[in-house]
Design a protein around this nucleic acid. Sequence first.
DNA 1: GTGGTCTAGACCACC
DNA 2: GTGGTCTAGACCACG
Lengths: 135, 135, 135, 135
Amino acid sequence: MFIELNFRSGKPVYLQVVDQIKSAIASGGLRAGESLPSIRPLSEQLRINRNTVAKAYAELENQGVIETMPGKGSVVAANHSPLKKEVRVKMLCEEIDAAIVQAHHLQVPPAEFLSLVEQRLATFQQKTADSTPQS
Amino acid sequence: MFIELNFRSGKPVYLQVVDQIKSAIASGGLRAGESLPSIRPLSEQLRINRNTVAKAYAELENQGVIETMPGKGSVVAANHSPLKKEVRVKMLCEEIDAAIVQAHHLQVPPAEFLSLVEQRLATFQQKTADSTPQS
Amino acid sequence: MFIELNFRSGKPVYLQVVDQIKSAIASGGLRAGESLPSIRPLSEQLRINRNTVAKAYAELENQGVIETMPGKGSVVAANHSPLKKEVRVKMLCEEIDAAIVQAHHLQVPPAEFLSLVEQRLATFQQKTADSTPQS
Amino acid sequence: MFIELNFRSGKPVYLQVVDQIKSAIASGGLRAGESLPSIRPLSEQLRINRNTVAKAYAELENQGVIETMPGKGSVVAANHSPLKKEVRVKMLCEEIDAAIVQAHHLQVPPAEFLSLVEQRLATFQQKTADSTPQS
DNA sequence: GTGGTCTAGACCACC
DNA sequence: GTGGTCTAGACCACG
């Protein structure tokens, strides 16, 4: 569980924790059912307040990414979102549009952009496969 | 100059203005040398505080995207991309990775994700083409 | 906006605030688009910490009950849940089952229970109608 | 003695045990004078700590629902409802109101809500009848 | 040991 | 003025 914080980025610390844990899960570094580090030790490791980690975990829980059992710790949830399909696609499209606008702004042509997407996607799938050698 | 604000997104209003103007320039809606609407009418059109628009313009000027001549309005600066290609690609990859992680957690499979990206990209290119028929 | 807190009930204070606001909305006391009291004054009125009210508002926001615009306050959201219908019905059934078990336990016969439900439902609809005389 | 635990609900485990035993008694699954499973086997069956079951039984004894004779096990107490009818109805109404508020926020219209209540009630009576065929 | 709640007080970003 | 974040330290419930 390696998390790197950037205190100068302006992005809230608890959100950095959220995003990095989600990213670890998406790339297979953490798998459904696996335990997350407890709040107190993690807060000490990251040199931040316990409440800040707790806030991150609470956010992850109500996004349905983890499940936390008071007194017993948190585990990665089985992945299935309770949101309507249309809402999920809409949320994803906003993220995609942001990337497309960014590409235009950085003068990366559409063809190269698409190829980049395919390449990054392949990287993620590779990582996921690597961490499930038992299948 | 069509700008759509989302007051619910948590993203600062002035940054939404900044990003949408940058995106309008990137996508050809605004071209180098063209002038931007003045602060007062734009703030009335968007129904936001003049200070907010002023802050957005200041930020754009800071980034070298526009040039403001006090008393004479603002124009789009000559296009330049001082960043090295590799830096730009790295920035873009962060945006792409965010979308991929999001897709995983929203239960959108890779194939559908790719297809969505292609679709949004096509839509975006269509809009770009529409707004630059003179080229 | 009358909220009554019971500090001895064991129910978290912030949840008491959440439930009473949701109840006020459901019964028509607060209508879509209406403003909620600001966090600071409400916390003073209730004699609790600002963070506790903030936590309640955050919870209401991510249940989609209110919308909050940083720097401008919170308003009651237009009501439409992004959850799948099946999930919504399941959540509701848990609440209903709790009431049914309670009725059995309190030795209230089914017929009387049903009649009670109809009566309370009518009361709520009445209150809603009263607060929308303009329709 | 079938008890189903939900470790994700946030509701304390020992309270889930308490409520399900109370509900089993209320619905006829357990009758006055009948004995309950002892703590040790029940804790093994539910895969929870013995202390948790013990706490549940202590709570039940406190509420007068069961009677425990140290060294001899626990039996269901003779049924009694010391609360006045009006108090019981008031308690029940709070539970009902909670369900109605929930229905409003989950966008379930009153008609569908009533129909759901009738359906769940029928299911519950069915279960009750099944477990008391001897009456 | 775990997570949850609440308080108190600080600083910041936005409008 | 508004809400958002973070810290620090306290107490409690649960297993």
